[in-house]
Simulated assay, not measured.
Amino acid sequence: MAEDGQEDLEERRKRLANELGALRKGQGGENGKKAETSANDRREMSKGLKLSSEFMAAIFVGFMIGFLLDKFAGTGPWGMIGFLLLGFGAGVLNVLRSVGYVAEPEDRLKKDGK
């Protein structure tokens, strides 16, 4: 009786090993897809960080130019407000150009044939 239990246990172990091997082969394709998706996620994340840093840099440069103009020319907050708005506009334009909604000036000239 102890032998029957051992044989039965050995048979079940082999069957489970075969099933596990089949499952691992099936997951091999999914791991490749997960790695590809992960690479795409990282690529999109880096693109988003690039766009946000360009946007924030444009606003910061506009702010600093306006602040320095106000400090040296004594124009009050108007230089800072004006250049802050210009920086915001420049940041939006940079993001739109990077995404592809607005063509680069050189590309527009080539299309017009000038």
Rank of each mutant, 00 (worst) to 15 (best):
residue 43 R to T: 11
residue 114 K to Q: 11
residue 18 N to L: 08
residue 101 Y to R: 12
residue 10 E to G: 09
residue 94 N to S: 11
residue 55 F to I: 02
residue 59 I to W: 02
residue 89 G to D: 02
residue 55 F to K: 01
residue 20 L to S: 09
residue 82 G to F: 10
residue 16 L to S: 12
residue 86 L to H: 08
residue 99 V to P: 00
residue 55 F to A: 04
residue 16 L to V: 09
residue 23 L to R: 14
residue 90 A to D: 09
residue 3 E to N: 04
residue 3 E to A: 04
residue 9 L to Y: 13
residue 69 L to K: 11
residue 75 T to I: 00
residue 63 F to D: 00
residue 81 I to W: 15
residue 53 S to K: 05
residue 29 G to F: 13
residue 35 A to M: 09
residue 6 Q to R: 14
residue 22 A to K: 15
residue 59 I to N: 03
residue 34 K to G: 01
residue 73 A to W: 06
residue 99 V to R: 09
residue 43 R to A: 15
residue 15 R to S: 15
residue 92 V to E: 02
residue 72 F to C: 04
residue 101 Y to E: 13
residue 78 W to L: 07
residue 5 G to Q: 00
residue 78 W to H: 00
residue 62 G to K: 03
residue 41 D to V: 06
residue 85 L to T: 08
residue 104 E to Q: 10
residue 48 G to F: 06
residue 39 A to G: 02
residue 2 A to L: 09
residue 71 K to T: 09
residue 67 F to A: 10
residue 74 G to K: 05
residue 84 L to C: 11
residue 42 R to Y: 01
residue 60 F to I: 14
residue 46 S to R: 15
residue 64 M to S: 14
residue 3 E to L: 04
residue 19 E to T: 03
residue 6 Q to A: 14
residue 2 A to T: 10
residue 8 D to G: 15
residue 28 G to H: 04
residue 101 Y to M: 10
residue 14 K to F: 10
residue 8 D to Q: 12
residue 10 E to L: 12
residue 107 D to A: 14
residue 48 G to P: 03
residue 84 L to V: 00
residue 30 E to A: 10
residue 15 R to F: 15
residue 5 G to I: 03
residue 113 G to F: 06
